[in-house]
Every structure is written in structure tokens, then in C-alpha cells.
Design a protein around this nucleic acid. Structure first.
Lengths: 227, 227
DNA sequence: AAACTATCTGTACGTATGTATTATTTGTCA
DNA sequence: TGACAAATAATACATACGTACAGATAGTTT
């Protein structure tokens, strides 16, 4: 198990060792996002974090615990943003549309990923790795499905006549589209320009694809629901 | 480099060693699809193929060459199906629609993945791993982008007023939705049913999501193009 | 200041990895 | 049938891996 659960003390300064712990988590987050879980060694993480090997284990336990910690570290904030956006829709007076619903789900993710914080961008790209590997599905189920289920419920209210598994499939497809937008800005640019490796300013490009993504998911779900 | 380029000889029987080579490729294909490139060792592949360690290297060269070979092995057939479906549209008399276009792109993939051949299903799931890892982008660019670019050209002809990078983004999103449908049948079923791990009959479930997928991509691109 | 404990260093262990190499077998063809 | 080459087996090698642990260090508390 990982030690050091507390984060800040009363005077606001970090608890002893907490800064180190966060450097380790940040480094691991970046590396896992770049290369995936298995291609990254604890020694690489230690070097990236400018820390000795033992420190990684001390602060983060085993490699799987470290990965799980990274996943959990930001999910709460992401889920909270999504839920508060949804609550704003629910109590906004106007009727909920599928577009406003998808915007409430997608915008927090794109906001965090494109705001300039490289760690949030890394986290966003890291999540994209989870989709392809059924090994992480238990984590996905725990961390991301609860909110997804709530949004799925809202979608069902919009299309009461549509089959539930069609809507569920369409939502999963929307999530895949969202994740791929973050993971594949390079491919999008390459396809659009014909050039091989256009310069990578991921943050800006992401923001520029936000509307396209929301439109795409909106139209996709609408059409999938219609049948 | 891998030896044994020939496949069959005049009498139709396999060239000596070719059966072994295919067992190795099949085993590696399954394992890579299940666990990803880095989580699979050459020894596991050898064991799965019921072959000694040296045989893998003899027939398939290095691990990266083996992976590349697996990717290349089926792409030609997949691309050919897509192109002939597109040609049928072009010379079919009727006007091309975005839905028929997406069906031409998606159907061959879903056909292969759901027809019951476990190796094609493995290949289909393997491709889903490529999207998240920029390390394989050069292969994606060589193997899959050429056909994707042709379809992108057709999409542009349908929406001449739409920005090209919006259409490119929408196409990449469609591909992501397609891949996730194969990779995430479990998650779809879990979200739809509320149960944790519904029984996995991936082939059938895949086929049942075909229309939803095509509808989703159709509606998504339509809406993304409209802006 | 002294005792204490969280944090960090350095190193070691056992195992697994990708690849190369050397024998041995097996099929093929002159 | 005998020679040759392709195919398979067996082993070795250097390196990297995840993890554990004993000792040193430095903040904190009494």
C-alpha cells in the first residue's frame, strides 16, 4: 500500500514528502500517457521524476497501485464538473437537448485537456489507453461508468422509444470519439493537410475540434436513436 | 528479416514451414489483440503457437517485424473490400449518400470481425490498440490512411462547403467509434443491462451493433459537416 | 537536545526479456 | 540414395524488470 494519504497541512504548505509524491505521479502520468502501462518501467518513472528507484515504491506501492492512483487522482474533479454541468441543465429552465447533454459531458474533458496544464492533457490521453485494453475495464467501470450511466439515463428520457442498448452503444461510441480526438490530433491534421507530421500544438488543435466533436456526437446519437 | 515469403506451391499444399509460420502469426495476433504489444512476450507467443522459442524468430524476425507483419497480413483484403464497396457505389447509378459511404467503409470491417473467424476478430481488436499509441502511427499512416483519404475525398464531394479539417476530424471520430464497437462490446452490454459482466458472445453482439454504428457515424458526419 | 519517525538512498535478488548462436532434424531434389 | 538446404530444437547471453530491504538522512515532536 502507498503511504502519505494527507496532502496539505493547516498552514497550507505541503506535508513532508507530498511534493515528491506528486512529482512521481506526474512523471508516471506523462509516461503512461505517452507509451501505455506495459511499455513504461518504474525505473523510467524514477528518472523522469528525478527520484531514486525506491522512492517510487515508497510513495506509490506497486506498479498497478500507482496506475490506479493516477486514474483516481483526477476522476473526481472531472466527474464533478460533468455533474454540475448536468445540474445546470436540469435547473436551467430550458428543456434539455441532446446537444446540451453531450456538451455537458464533453466540455469538462476538453476544457481540462486543452487548458494548458500538461498533466491534465497527459491524463486525458492516458484515459484513451483504457478503452482498448479489457484489463482495465474494472477500473473504467468503477470510475467512469457511474457518471456515464446518469447521462445515459438522461438520453433515455430524450428518446423514450429507442432501444436502450442502441443508446448505450451510441454513448460508448461518443466516448470513443471524444477520446480519439485527444489521442489523434496528429492523425486528424495529417489527413486534413496531406502533410506527414504537422507541427504538434495539441492544446490549441484540441480546442478547435471541440465544436466538431460535440456536433458529431449529437448528430450520431440523434440518428442512432431514431433507428 | 523474416524468411519464407512464398505461401503455397503449385499443388496447393503449403510450402514447408508455412503452416508453422501461420500458427505463429495466428497466436501472436490473438495475444496482441488481448493484451497489447508490450504485455506479450515472444515466449508466450511460442507457447501459444506450440512452437519453440527460436522458431518465432526464424519465421518472423524481431518482435516489431512480427507485429508489423501481422498488421500487413490482413490489411490488403480489408482495403480491397472497402474499395470494391466504394466502386459499387460509384457505378451503381444512384447518388452516393453519406450513409452508403459509411456503410461501405464500416461493413467490411464488421463483416470480418463478426463472421466467426476468431483470427479476424483478433485482428479487428488488435487494430483498436493502434489508435491510442502514437508509436504505431507510422504504420497506421501507411496501411490505413490511403483508403481513409479516398473516403475523405468522397465525403468532401458530399459537403463541398464544409471545412476539410472538420470532415477529417469527423472521419477519425467515426473510425474511433467503429474500433470501440469491437473493443467495447462488454462495456456497451454492461451499461445497457446494469449487470456487471454479461456473457460474452462478441461476434453476435457485434453484428447487432452494426446498424447502430453506421447510423451513428452517418448522423455524426452529417451534423459535423453542417457545422 | 534527544528521541522519534517519515523520507530517501543504495543495493541486492530472482525472474523474465529479446535476440543470437549452435546443433539437430527433416524434407526436397539431383 | 546421398547431398543440400530449410526448418526446428536447445541453449546461452546480456540486459531489464518489479520488488524488497537495510541503512542513512532529515524533519518533527517531546
Amino acid at each position: 500500500m502507498s503511504q502519505a494519504e494527507a496532502t496539505v497541512r493547516e498552514d497550507g504548505r505541503l506535508v513532508r514528502g507530498e511534493a515528491t509524491r506528486e512529482r512521481v505521479l506526474d512523471a508516471a502520468e506523462r509516461l503512461f500517457a505517452d507509451h501505455g502501462y506495459d511499455a513504461v518501467s518504474i525505473r523510467q518513472i524514477a528518472k523522469e521524476a528525478e527520484v531514486t528507484l525506491g522512492v517510487v515504491g515508497f510513495h506509490s506501492g506497486s506498479k498497478e497501485e500507482l496506475f490506479s492512483t493516477i486514474l483516481r487522482r483526477r476522476v473526481e474533479l472531472l466527474s464533478a464538473r460533468r455533474m454540475s454541468a448536468l445540474d445546470a441543465l436540469r435547473h436551467g429552465g430550458q428543456a434539455i437537448t441532446i446537444r446540451s447533454l453531450m456538451a455537458a459531458y464533453i466540455n469538462p474533458y476538453i476544457d481540462f485537456a486543452s487548458a494548458g496544464d500538461p498533466q491534465w492533457l497527459a491524463y486525458a490521453r492516458l484515459i484513451a489507453h483504457l478503452a482498448g485494453d479489457s484489463r482495465w475495464y474494472p477500473h473504467v467501470k468503477d470510475l467512469y461508468d457511474p457518471v456515464a450511466l446518469i447521462f445515459l439515463g438522461e438520453i433515455e428520457r430524450l428518446y423514450p422509444e429507442a432501444a436502450r442498448d442502441r443508446l448505450a452503444a451510441a454513448l460508448v461510441m461518443s466516448v470513443a470519439a471524444m477520446l480519439s480526438t485527444v489521442a489523434s490530433t496528429v492523425r486528424i491534421a495529417a489527413l486534413a493537410s496531406g502533410n506527414d507530421f504537422p507541427p504538434a500544438d495539441t492544446g490549441e488543435r484540441l480546442a478547435s475540434h471541440r465544436e466538431t466533436l460535440i456536433d458529431f456526437c449529437t448528430g450520431g446519437i440523434e440518428r442512432a436513436a431514431r433507428g
